[in-house]
Design a protein around this nucleic acid. Structure first.
Lengths: 196, 196
DNA sequence: ATGGTTCTGGACCGGCGGGTACAGTCGAAG
DNA sequence: CTTCGACTGTACCCGCCGGTCCAGAACCAT
């Protein structure tokens, strides 16, 4: 089992791993480095994560995935007016602009993502939840007559997801959030169109 | 200098590295593995790439970047009608659907991309060229009266780029090209809108 | 053929990093 | 205060992998 002290240590390790990934990049992350930053050693590390590095990295991925959605609250839950959508857009852009070049989640996924099913599940869950929230917002707007009824909300939400992911990908490699804004705004403009 | 034989060997090495990255993922790529697949040894490897692994990987990245644009020809150069746009879209989706989970370029960039300026330049060049081609196509359509004149071609082309990158990113982690299609189609629908 | 260059094979090295072993220390329950 | 499990520090192991070295084979020009 886990005592309070143990839990705190475990948390310190995950935090340290997350920071280490952000600052040095996934390929430069070492267990020793994580140990040093969290003021622990490999013995603790393997005590809390018996399966070693992979298990630890997975824990970090789960934590980061939760954070992605949390950072969009409360805006993501109140997409019932154009102002609200704009607010959400601004929060999202700002969040990623600040994060800048370092996308711990993306890096984590591309690194361990396609090999282990567990990591893949983390991505799937995040993407699905995110998209559902957007779709719910679109449908709310349709119910209020603000978006044409003939817009396919699944497709639109899916496109929005791709726009976000792509914008962030380009942000990571170029450092500019311009594409993210372009893509987001184009999607929103599309939704705002009154007549097809 | 380089003899014909040497050039062939060099090519074999780059090919082998590209395949190795596709099949095993960047983190599992080793010089020994590349040597084995290309029926060479590390001595040749360092003979043709004195700066070692990084230089080799960069060469692979350059090759893959060129291929990305080549694979879209001739469609990318003839975006002068809606049918042509549709053809381009289909070619793109099919290309990435076939490539499936393995995106050597993306992987390469996220791995060595943000650290070395040389690798960053490869991405920038690809993205810029690609976007310019799209923008030229949009402007051609505008000149022909097929797209509203008040559409900002730079923004639209940028959004299209983000849509593609995001769609591919999701394709890589989920295996489905659905999002890529949604995003592409939404952008094209947006361009097709007659009245704002 | 002969000299010089390019090309190739194979043995070697050094350190880095994930993982293990073990001997403790702490802390709470009885 | 004892006891037992959770917790922690240290030292160690070992396989892997990027990189080096050098001797020799192949190739090319004159």
């Amino acid at each position: 089992m886990l005592t309070a002290k143990g839990l705190a240590t475990r948390e310190r390790i995950v935090d340290a791993a997350a920071v280490e990934i952000r600052e040095r990049g996934i390929s430069a992350v070492t267990l020793d480095g994580i140990g040093q930053r969290s003021r622990t050693g490999k013995s603790q590390l393997f005590h809390y994560f018996p399966d070693g590095k992979e298990q630890l990295l997975l824990a970090v991925a789960e934590r980061e995935a939760e954070r992605v959605l949390e950072d969009q609250e409360p805006q993501l839950g109140q997409l019932a007016s154009w102002d609200a959508w704009q607010d959400w857009r601004d929060v999202l852009v700002e969040r990623y602009r600040r994060q800048g070049v370092h996308c711990p989640l993306g890096v984590l996924i591309t690194e361990i993502g396609r090999h282990t099913p567990a990591a893949q599940a983390v991505t799937d869950k995040l993407l699905t939840q995110w998209q559902q929230r957007l779709q719910a917002g679109i449908e709310e707007m349709q119910a209020a007559g603000e978006i044409r009824a003939d817009v396919d909300s699944t497709r639109a939400a899916g496109a929005l997801m791709a726009a976000i992911q792509g914008g962030v990908a380009i942000l990571m490699s170029s450092g500019s959030a311009q594409h993210l804004e372009y893509a987001l705004d184009l999607c929103l403009d599309y939704l705002r169109v009154k007549t097809s």
